[in-house]
Design a protein around this nucleic acid. Structure first.
Lengths: 248, 248
DNA sequence: CTCTGGGCTTGATCTGGGTCAAATTCTGTC
DNA sequence: GACAGAATTTGACCCAGATCAAGCCCAGAG
């Protein structure tokens, strides 16, 4: 049986062409050679936009390398980022969906694609894959709901602090320094992208970044390099509640 | 193989106790008698709040009857609704999650619960169940993302129009009158609940309802009964784009 | 029939964040 | 090492929606 923290991951196994494998992130063993047979690759340049119309796509894909964003727009141009696609994240789905998203490549992207029908057929007799996709999707749903709280009820300053702490936390898990109070990282987003993520304008983002800097919550070296002297302070600014919650 | 539109539904099969079944919405046949063996019921009164702490719950549940809302709050009391739970909707998940939600009963609720471990075990060898849960979760994710666009980028008037058209559409599918331009329905939410859903205050909700009424977009009989003379007009007000999107 | 309280509306005023505009870095690149 | 263009900052001003405060409507209780 799969581990709780198992993920469907993309791994660069040495030289090109990069191999896509379904592995358990913990035990590191291949589980499904079958994926190998139905996959192909597709790359996109930084800045390129792909309109991902759910029910018209005949494939699903997973990011192998690079960063992309998932956005929705109104016809007058207002745009809202609704997801960040990092290596190993999936886009597209087994099943129908009317929703259409813009997938915008922030960097050059390599995607591993699976033709939909074979992928769905495969899921039929390999419950592990279905369960992992379910777990990944549930995690995304949790993240989306937390973001709804941010979009609906947080102030501009809290929004910025929340975004920074999320980026910091992600870096922390990479650096294995989650317990450190002092953190340093690079922002992978422009001010405009941050604004689209947070439901703000880029001017407001800039102003609040300046305010947080003035108040000593963050330090900036250049525009993108951020140092947080005290993570607890930042989390406080983000307004996230930390109480555990009771059981019924 | 399961149909695309298959759902895991709760059905009231005549007398109490209500039976929970996993059926295909299209072919109407039972697929999994096994669910019967691990389920039990639990009811909640209107107004009751349950703190649903993902990783501490030892069961998952599905709404059999009644309406509940899923909300998140900041410690100072600001609250944001992040989902609506209607009959057949699931809450809780097979797998771990740190997220905690408040489940607030809008009406009296009957829930069908499954103890987590047996439910997860069952998923292992019944791929249909896993696939349906995945499909349901993906649909919820689409809805959450559409809501993020609303929360982040729509004006108060557009938010109200969007909510009304969603409620109208849901009623339409029940009444089988999707093609009608003229629609009538009851709002299942108080002004305050609408506000929490839309990231607004109840005063703004009230004002915008009055404005839509004044402009002839809707008619009100009493506070909760709404008539929409022209759905197209309402959809226009909601600002949703209708263009199909291209394929890459 | 009146009282009460919750849901709702409406008005007056305030303000956070949007809008518009200009100045100031940064990043190349020739 | 200067020029071009994009990213960012900062300022001035404005407005949509929040806040504060009355008052209204109506269903249920007595």
């Amino acid at each position: 049986m799969p581990h709780d923290d198992a993920k469907l991951v993309s791994l660069n196994c040495g030289d090109c062409p990069i191999r896509h494998r379904a592995v358990c992130a913990r035990c590191e063993t291949d589980e499904l050679e079958e994926l190998e047979r139905i996959k192909y690759y597709r790359s996109f340049e930084a800045g390129q936009t792909v309109i991902w119309a759910g029910d018209q796509m005949d494939f699903v894909a997973s990011v192998v390398s690079g960063i992309a964003t998932l956005t929705q727009t109104l016809e007058d141009g207002r745009t809202q980022m609704v997801g960040l696609l990092l290596p190993s994240d999936f886009v597209g789905r087994p099943g129908r969906s009317r929703a259409a998203y813009n997938v915008i490549a922030t960097t050059d992207i390599l995607m591993c694609c699976f033709r939909r029908k074979p992928f769905e057929d495969m899921m039929e007799h390999t419950p592990h894959i279905a369960q992992r996709l379910l777990q990944m999707t549930l995690d995304e749903l949790d993240a989306a709901r937390e973001w709804m709280l941010l979009l609906g009820r947080k102030t501009a300053r809290e929004k910025i602090a929340s975004l920074l702490s999320i980026v910091a936390r992600r870096n922390a898990s990479i650096q294995m320094r989650a317990s450190e109070r002092d953190m340093t990282f690079d922002l992978p987003l422009t001010r405009e992208a941050m604004a689209d993520y947070l439901g703000l304008t880029l001017e407001t983002v800039s102003r609040q970044m300046s305010a947080l800097k003035r108040d000593g919550v963050i330090e900036l070296q250049g525009k993108r390099h951020v140092r947080v002297p005290d993570m607890d302070r930042l989390l406080l600014e983000a307004g996230d509640d930390s109480d555990g919650g009771f059981i019924i």
